[in-house]
């Protein structure tokens, strides 16, 4: 960029225009960075909360989970996810997904033939599946927002550390060059004028 600039007024005008654009964009990326940091913090809090809920459910289930070892019923058949609906919203240019509904297949449990513990097992498994689905979505959100944050930081740093200083330097270079050219032209013009005046006087 700095090596091949044309030292003329058009380039100077273009560079000044670019600098103006960079100066407008910099605070936008700074604000975006700040906003994304806040979003990441809130998603991280949600992820921690969900992880805690999953651990709490595991601890609670462990107190009686031994009954699930009884080889009488296939829990997989009783609890299948029918569909997962998500809703999306845009935060600072990133699409964030949230769990809207998680619908399980409505399978009737035979209360006469199945053991009593099956009811509690079905409830706990549904709760944990819902928690895991939400965690999965939040972790996906976190990955996307972190990626966007990295991009915003790259842009901010590029503007701050490269584009703006380089453009300013190039503008300065062209201004000095054009100033020198202008002074040289004036000097030449004065010299020519003096020569003409001397010729006229000699005649």
């Amino acid at each position: 960029m700095a090596d091949k600039i044309l030292m003329n007024k058009n380039t100077l005008a273009t560079l000044k225009n670019e600098l103006k654009g960079y100066r407008t964009a910099l605070p936008v990326f700074e604000m975006k960075e700040q906003k994304l940091k806040e979003v990441i913090q809130s998603i991280e809090t949600a992820v921690e909360r969900l992880k805690q809920a999953i651990m709490d459910t595991n601890s609670e289930v462990k107190q009686w989970v031994g009954v699930m070892a009884e080889p009488t019923i296939d829990l997989d058949v009783l609890i299948t996810v029918k569909n997962i609906d998500t809703k999306t919203r845009e935060i600072a240019g990133v699409i964030v997904k949230q769990l809207d509904t998680l619908v399980f297949d409505d399978i009737d449990i035979d209360f006469y033939e199945t053991p009593l513990w099956v009811d509690a097992a079905v409830e706990s498994i549904k709760d944990q599946k819902t928690n895991l689905a939400m965690l999965h979505l939040e972790q996906g959100n976190l990955d996307r927002v972190r990626e966007e944050l990295a991009e915003a930081r790259r842009m901010k740093n590029a503007l701050k550390e490269v584009f703006i200083p380089e453009t300013k330097a190039n503008i300065r270079k062209i201004e000095i060059y054009l100033g020198d050219v202008e002074r040289l032209a004036i000097g030449c013009a004065k010299l020519v004028k003096k020569k003409k005046e001397r010729k006229t006087e000699a005649l």
Binding site: V61, M68, A69, P71, L75, A121, S124
Partner: peptide
């Protein structure tokens, strides 16, 4: 005796 925490938790 078939109620076993380790096996049950694995299934869970």
């Amino acid at each position: 005796w078939s109620f076993n925490e380790d096996v049950g938790f694995k299934i869970f």
